[in-house]
Design a protein around this nucleic acid. Structure first.
Lengths: 255, 255
DNA sequence: GGTCGCGTTTGATCAATATCAATAGCCGGA
DNA sequence: TCCGGCTATTGATATTGATCAAACGCGACC
């Protein structure tokens, strides 16, 4: 299955629409740089980064960027599109562990065991920058700013997961969904998109999996939030009408 | 409040029993080395590690090693004792995000923002090795094996949190508790303790907080597991009588 | 342009766990 | 060593969200 997006195919993963481009990924003039790379680095350092991030790869909607058990070789920075990561348990149950958008880094799960522990699946046609991990390791030895930045990215991921634990462990369904919408909104803003209006890339079931509830509960809550004038929903389209109302649900905890 | 454990006090944190020892922490002859440091490093590298881990600190039961908002300056390797990390939400609710035992690393949460985002609290009188983060950053520039090891530790923490997310998001209360007991057991074994018999260091409430359930539910489940012959419980003492039974609950998921 | 299937919505009922409450027991500090 | 408060257990009831079920609508693909 060859896609029209292909530029220079160098790899084909059994039947999947995976394309890799040798075109320089060119951090130096990437508009995601602030999101994804250390701020305030010198231009010689930028050249080194361009060396590091040497290829792009396209991933079609519903295809996996990598799967559980795949040998860990690279991290990926999302250039365009939207991903989920999914952990599958022995008995088949699975859990969405994250949604990733432009400028965010995928693959940190693989470092510890040198094999991936989750699946990373594109929720829309997407493109990533490949960052070969061996090169990153090596380069971070010479570039303190890169090293520091990388450590911060990992730490922030740990902190993000901490707050998901709090979400799942102590919050009610309506609080979780409010938190989810507020988080999405905030991440849209920091990418220069509208804060209060967006298209969800994931299904109700995927939202539910991430938030630890069933898809019916997600659907009911969307309807209820709409009835209460907090949001406007039409399928994947969401508009936040009362962001303070959402924040009150999220944090006020009238119990 | 000065403790008898004190050796060479160099810091006192407002009324808390915090003691810091300038005694070389001496990774080179620490029996936790395999757990906490990179395997197969040279002896000159070991000397550098001894340089890095330059002090110990005692923390008394129920005292904090650090608190949310504290400036981030060091990581800590648990030498002896037992800690919990705890995330507190705006409205006062909190969630235990981890339990840490000998050889494990505390403080990764602080790297990203240069301030701690959780509290780390000792659940029994404990001792930690202080690892000043600036030194770790610097040394990891020169020591690839240390750098690689550190990245793996962070990645494994991300993976651990992934599985807690799965626990909280998709598992039933009895499955969570079984998973918790099995995990504790496994960590005891890898430290050379008995696999099937141990004293819990945390209360039912702390277990419940970690597992996303109320303390009454934890208590009832302990009673039920005991009635079913899976375990023997007496307050904090637990003996696993049927580890396969626990595993079946954890993973079999008859639903 | 039609049709098939997935995703979504909504309703009715059920089950798991929280909540409220009361008692008992242990442990830690003086 | 004793006391007091924290921790645990257990019961009765309430509530949230899951489950089962049915119908609908959108969109992808033929």
């Amino acid at each position: 299955m060859i896609t029209s997006h292909r530029i220079t195919p160098i790899a084909e993963v059994e039947g999947e629409s995976v394309t890799v481009s040798r075109l320089k990924a060119a951090c130096s003039n990437c508009n995601l740089r602030e999101l994804c790379m250390p701020a305030g680095i010198s231009s010689t350092e930028l050249d080194q980064l361009d060396e590091l991030v040497y290829a792009r790869r396209k991933v079609k909607r519903s295809d996996a960027l990598y799967r559980t058990g795949d040998p860990f070789e690279a991290l990926y920075a999302v250039r365009t599109g939207f991903f989920k990561t999914r952990l599958t348990f022995q008995d088949g149950r699975d859990q969405v562990t994250g949604f990733l958008m432009a400028g965010e880094l995928i693959g940190l799960d693989g470092i510890g065991t040198e094999a991936h522990t989750v699946d990373a699946v594109a929720l829309e046609d997407s493109e990533v920058c490949m960052i070969p991990y061996a090169k990153l390791e090596a380069l971070s030895g010479e570039m303190p700013s890169l090293r520091t930045h990388f450590h911060k990215v990992m730490s922030r991921e740990i902190v993000r997961e901490n707050s998901v634990m709090m979400l799942l462990g102590t919050m009610r369904a309506e609080e979780r969904l409010a938190a989810f919408l507020l988080n999405l909104s905030q991440r849209m803003v920091s990418r220069g998109y509208a804060a209060l209006e967006f298209h969800l890339r994931m299904t109700r079931e995927e939202i539910g999996s991430y938030l630890g509830m069933k898809l019916e509960t997600v659907s009911r809550l969307f309807s209820r939030f709409q009835a209460e004038g907090l949001i406007e929903v039409d399928q994947k389209y969401v508009r936040i009408k009362d962001i303070d109302g959402l924040k009150a649900i999220y944090a006020h905890h009238t119990h």
